[in-house]
Design a protein around this nucleic acid. Structure first.
Length: 518
RNA sequence: GCGGGUGUAGCUCAGCUGGUAGAGCGGCACGUUGCCAACGUGCAGGUCGACGGUUCGAACCCGUUCACCCGCUCCA
């Protein structure tokens, strides 16, 4: 059984993650977090929110940043005015049948791509050959002519003309929907035929209707990203929060994408949770802030215990960049199913604010009242966007924590989660179920429980209880034994080393709190 | 969406040429034990993914369908 299978089994067996609505057969791309999973995921989100937003100190330079900066948070609604998604490009970009070129990674609207075939130059329009190459060109069906084919295609066409003599080119409707014809089709800029994917309707956004009437005027979308809620509130935050450039707005929340093919456990889901920051700065400082956020976000995962050897920061090639991004880097983790993206950090320039300014006709420019030059006072800030997936981060922490080691010949399964992320911080056991130990243990348990998630267990052998907590990732197990009854000390057993220390029960809270902050 | 594979207990799986459901682990109870998955006894838990067909009889054969996994694809 490979690591991923083991992890999925453990997640189910111990109550981390279940398939959504499982008693009805589940729903592809949707997952439920169980009693342990919800604590883990909350801890991931809480760590992010604290580290990025609520505990951020705007009076200090953070992690060698270029300057001090402010961070504020918002929580915008999932349903928004649909014009938001027109401005962002999501409505036009993802609602039509599209084909992708595997080689050039370009995407075309299938209904606006014209495919030409070579036919006899007489009236028969008979194909000159059943296996000739076909040429695809983006254009408008019915009006794009041979002359408008890309230059690279022209060369090939004239080459064929030299070899085969006279022929003419006609449009072949529906060629992209036919697998055999598609395999012979040369995409613009591609080096060989057959690189185009099947046309697919990219109904990426989930549609719904607001109000009682189900007509086009009531159409609304479940947000496919949380980012636009931040851009849409940029002016509100500027007007009310007393922030000055540079500053960031953070948001945690659900987003929805009707993925063609959800895969790899919770990694690609249709409903997922994002942890996004839109960081606004002066255009001339954008690249230095981009560097800063790349490194800061990469190190955030390391600080929470992810194996550095499995975490990569990958800078995108220019050709990989989305049209709105000037630069982009991915934080990638080596999952058992392959290297995959946890977070993208992009320099989005002023694309989003500009789009929203044009569509909303509201002036979204930042007013720099310290700038003496009146011409330069109003401008659109550039945006650095560190956009992370909460479910992906949770999955990465789980995968990274999963360990099997040997304790006196027996295989032990243990989740070596960072104490800050562990669903349960401490478990309390009476060594035996007699001599007043359960009562003493319960007193200590109730004390710990006031401060952090704790567990009490008196069932079964002590070794079994330790192992149960190992599978849940509990970093500390506290055992009440004969000495506790005599002198008030307890043993505290470390999850990762199985080593025990003895300390007075009265010092437990302070000790564990200290360890949680490491 | 296309190609391939898999659906049996909470988990991992066995179940022969069709004959009426099993194991290990896990859970619970009691006893014994007492610092790293101890032992004993007992209990609970399955309309064998769903629907339909063939048959005296289907977990097994046939059809349909759903879900999941792998590859192509996409991305937080």
């Amino acid at each position: 059984m490979d690591l991923m299978d083991k992890l999925v089994s453990l997640a189910k067996r111990r109550g981390f993650i279940f398939p959504s609505s499982e008693i009805y057969g589940g729903l592809s791309g949707c997952w439920d977090y169980g009693p342990l999973g919800v604590e883990l995921k909350r801890n991931v989100k809480e760590a992010w929110w604290q580290d990025m937003v609520s505990r951020h100190d705007e009076t200090m330079f953070i992690d060698d940043g270029p300057s001090a900066y402010s961070m504020v948070g918002i929580d915008s609604s999932i349903l928004m005015n649909p014009r938001v998604w027109q401005a962002s490009g999501h409505v036009d970009g993802f609602s039509d049948p599209m084909v992708d070129c595997r080689e050039t990674r370009n995407r075309y609207r299938a209904d606006q791509m014209v495919v030409f075939g070579l036919v006899e130059s007489d009236q028969t329009n008979k194909p000159i050959d059943d296996n000739t190459i076909l040429f695809a060109a983006p254009g408008e069906l019915g009006s794009t002519a041979e002359e408008e084919l890309l230059a690279s295609h022209k060369k090939q066409v004239s080459k064929i003309r030299k070899a085969l003599g006279s022929f003419k080119m006609i449009q072949i409707p529906g060629a992209l929907s036919d697998a055999a014809l598609r395999a012979r089709t040369l995409a613009p800029g591609a080096s060989e035929p057959g690189t185009l994917t099947e046309p697919r309707a990219f109904n990426l956004m989930f549609e719904t209707h607001v109000g009682a009437l189900k007509d086009s005027s009531s159409t609304a979308y479940l947000r496919p990203e949380t980012a636009q809620g931040i851009f849409a509130n940029f002016k509100n935050v500027c007007d009310t929060a007393r922030v000055r450039l540079p500053f960031g707005i953070g948001q945690l929340g659900k987003a929805f994408r009707n993925e063609i093919n959800p895969r790899n456990f919770t990694f690609r889901s249709r409903e997922f949770e994002q942890m996004e920051i839109e960081f606004f700065c002066k255009p001339e400082e954008a690249s230095i802030w981009y560097q800063y956020w790349r490194d800061r976000r990469y190190n955030w995962y390391i600080g929470l215990g992810i194996d550095k050897a499995k975490l990569h920061l990958r800078e995108h090639e220019k050709s990989e960049l989305a049209h709105y991004a000037e630069s982009c880097a991915d934080v990638e983790y080596e999952f058992p199913f392959g290297i995959s993206e946890l977070e993208g950090i992009a320099n989005r320039t002023d694309f989003d604010l500009r789009q929203h300014m044009e569509h909303s006709r509201k002036d979204l420019r930042y007013l720099d009242d310290l700038e003496p030059d009146k011409e330069k006072r109003r401008f659109l800030p550039y945006v650095i966007e560190p956009s992370a997936g909460a479910d992906r981060a949770t999955l990465a922490f789980l995968c990274d924590a999963y360990t099997e080691d040997k304790i006196s010949g027996e295989t032990r399964t243990v989740l070596r989660l960072h104490p800050r992320l562990a669903p349960i911080k401490a478990a309390v056991f009476p060594l035996v179920k007699k001599d007043g130990m359960p009562d003493k243990a319960l007193t200590i348990y109730r004390e710990l429980r006031k401060q952090f998630t704790s567990s009490y267990d008196e069932k079964g052998a002590i070794g079994r209880r330790y192992r149960r907590q190992d599978e849940a990732g509990t970093p500390f197990c506290i055992t009440i034994d004969g000495d506790t009854m005599a002198n008030g000390t307890v043993t505290l057993r470390e999850r990762d080393t199985c080593e025990q220390i003895r300390l007075p029960a009265t010092e437990l809270l302070a000790y564990i709190n200290e360890r949680l902050d490491e």
